[in-house]
């Protein structure tokens, strides 16, 4: 392959991984607290819509971000109300959220803007645009390191850098704070946490709120950083790929980032390979790359690459004994 442009593939790997990283970290918080979160996809879509609408109305990307986070947290609280307070089935609740997101965003989008479920295109000032690091343009033509600096490290929007900061931050919260210790405990053995006099309900609610904040960032990224507005069903299964990445990383923060980068790379590579011929094979069908994250996750779940052990109390509503 003559023009395998590694730099541009890596650049788009970063761009495609960011929503996955935010969303997978969101799932990390809820699932580690023992609440299954199939509704990540829906929360992403809701927040993308809210961010696009708010940014369009106010012209400020930061208000868009706030709106995205607020709506996503609200949806998280509905999920919490159903699955923590009412002890409903967490998977059913997640499925409902996904339906609602896909339907409501399209209905409201059409009713408010009459553009087939889209929101009007945003001007650059209402979006998160690329930040060019110092000397990036000067170094662009100075060999591999310069190009790497200019295209992979520099030239992303602020949410990208927040995503990479969110990874160590999540690690710190989960493994170095009292809240994190309790959160992990409540996902393994809520009875023990309750016995220690800590509210299982409140802890799980806080975990879903954390997830809401992170999903809000991811939806905002989709709508007003990566694109210039909301498009119907724009999350396009990314919430589920993030879920796969979360499992692939065995519910740990730093591996979550690596898994998301891997799946983002597969996506970027698939885009790059489209319409290109590999000597001896011909054109590689793009569907192989689309299916690969899921296949890899299933192979992992089958126990061929280590063992993925989910949090023990995952999916089980906690019933206090009387």
């Amino acid at each position: 392959m003559e023009n395998l442009d590694i730099i541009s593939i890596l650049g788009s790997t970063i761009r495609l991984s960011i929503p996955l990283i935010f969303t997978a970290l969101a799932g990390l918080f809820t699932e580690r607290a023992g609440v299954f979160d199939i509704g990540l996809e829906g929360k992403m879509l809701f927040s993308a819509f809210a961010a696009a609408v708010a940014a369009f109305m106010t012209g400020s990307p930061w208000i868009g971000l706030l709106a995205g986070i607020a709506v996503s947290v609200l949806i998280s609280l509905i999920h919490g109300f159903a699955s923590i307070t009412n002890r409903g089935n967490q998977i059913v609740s997640g499925v409902a959220i996904n339906f609602l997101a896909s339907g409501l965003t399209a209905v409201l989008g059409q009713a408010w803007f009459s553009q087939g479920g889209r929101t009007p295109p945003l001007s650059p000032s209402a979006r998160f645009t690329e930040i060019i690091f110092p000397y990036a343009n000067e170094l662009r033509d100075t060999g591999f390191v310069g190009r790497f600096y200019a295209n992979v490290i520099s030239g992303h929007n602020v949410l990208t850098y927040i995503a990479f900061l969110a990874v160590p931050a999540s690690w710190w919260v989960l493994y170095r704070t009292r809240f994190g210790l309790r959160l992990r405990a409540v996902g393994e053995n809520p009875g023990a946490v309750d016995t220690a006099g800590i509210s299982v309900t409140w802890l799980r609610y806080r975990a879903t709120i954390c997830a809401g904040i992170l999903c809000g960032c991811s939806g905002t990224y989709l709508a007003i950083a990566q694109s210039a507005g909301f498009v119907k069903d724009m999350s396009a299964g990314k919430g589920f790929i993030a879920l796969a990445a979360l499992i692939f990383a065995k519910w740990r923060p730093v591996p979550v980032m690596l898994a998301c980068l891997l799946f983002g790379f597969l996506d970027a590579f698939a885009n790059f390979m489209q319409g290109k011929n590999v000597p001896g094979i011909g054109e590689v069908p793009v569907q192989i790359f689309q299916a690969l994250p899921y296949v890899l996750t299933c192979v992992l779940l089958a126990g061929f690459i280590g063992v993925a052990r989910p949090p023990k109390a995952g999916g089980v509503p906690y019933v206090k004994e009387r």
């Binding site: 409903g88 609740s93 409902a96 409501l104």
Partner: peptide
């Protein structure tokens, strides 16, 4: 898409809640 909304609400109230 309104159907999808109703569907979601039915799943939420008849299922999870």
């Amino acid at each position: 898409d309104m159907i999808v909304v109703i569907q979601g609400l039915v799943v939420l109230f008849a299922g999870a809640l």
